[in-house]
Simulated assay, not measured.
Amino acid sequence: MAILSWLAEQRIEEAMRKGEFRNLPGHGKPLELEDMTGVPEELRMSFKIMKNAGLLPEELQLRAECATLENLLAACHDGGGEKRQLGRRLTEKKLRLEELLRQRGLDGSAAFAQYGEQIRMRLDTE
């Protein structure tokens, strides 16, 4: 493994001499580090990969949709069809979320419940 590290260092130094690292996006700016303290350790790498690919786990998408529907319901002054339709959609999303969590064995996990509460609070503030 030491030879691979040495080879990588040599290539980096050569690229630096050639100026290949000049004018890169973000040059001279601080790194944007992600706070993943609320994410269970065993999920961090998979969430990071999915985030970099522009994907969200289905449970996070469902939670975001539930938060949006709850906000729409709270703002809805129409006592008629629109409110019922939003209520139905919210119920469907919540049932799907519960089923998904049950299938993954996360419905009784205290750590996941705490993580879920942190996600809900974050979605409510956005």
Results as ranks from 00 to 15, higher is better:
13 E>F: 10
16 M>G: 08
75 A>L: 07
3 I>M: 10
51 K>E: 04
63 R>H: 04
101 L>T: 09
40 P>Q: 04
96 R>E: 11
23 N>R: 10
28 G>Q: 01
99 E>G: 10
123 L>H: 05
100 L>R: 12
125 T>R: 14
92 E>D: 13
88 R>W: 08
30 P>K: 02
95 L>I: 11
85 Q>L: 13
96 R>W: 03
88 R>E: 10
81 G>F: 11
54 G>K: 02
73 L>F: 02
71 N>W: 05
21 F>E: 02
35 D>H: 12
49 I>W: 02
18 K>E: 15
91 T>C: 05
46 S>L: 01
85 Q>N: 14
26 G>C: 02
57 P>Q: 03
105 G>C: 08
68 T>A: 12
14 E>Q: 14
14 E>F: 14
3 I>Y: 07
40 P>C: 02
60 L>T: 00
11 R>T: 06
106 L>I: 09
18 K>F: 10
107 D>G: 06
85 Q>W: 10
96 R>C: 07
70 E>K: 04
57 P>N: 03
18 K>A: 15
12 I>V: 15
104 R>Y: 12
76 C>S: 13
69 L>T: 02
116 G>D: 07
76 C>Y: 05
52 N>W: 06
108 G>D: 08
71 N>D: 08
51 K>Y: 04
69 L>P: 00
34 E>M: 11
61 Q>F: 03
58 E>F: 05
22 R>V: 07
79 G>S: 09
86 L>Y: 10
41 E>N: 09
39 V>G: 03
81 G>P: 00
54 G>S: 01
40 P>E: 01
6 W>K: 15
112 F>G: 07
60 L>E: 15
9 E>N: 13
24 L>H: 01
63 R>I: 03
55 L>M: 08
107 D>Y: 08
69 L>F: 00
20 E>N: 13
90 L>N: 06
20 E>W: 13
102 R>E: 14
65 E>R: 10
102 R>Q: 15
40 P>S: 07
5 S>E: 08
45 M>P: 01
53 A>D: 04
115 Y>Q: 03
20 E>A: 13
60 L>H: 05
123 L>K: 06
34 E>K: 13
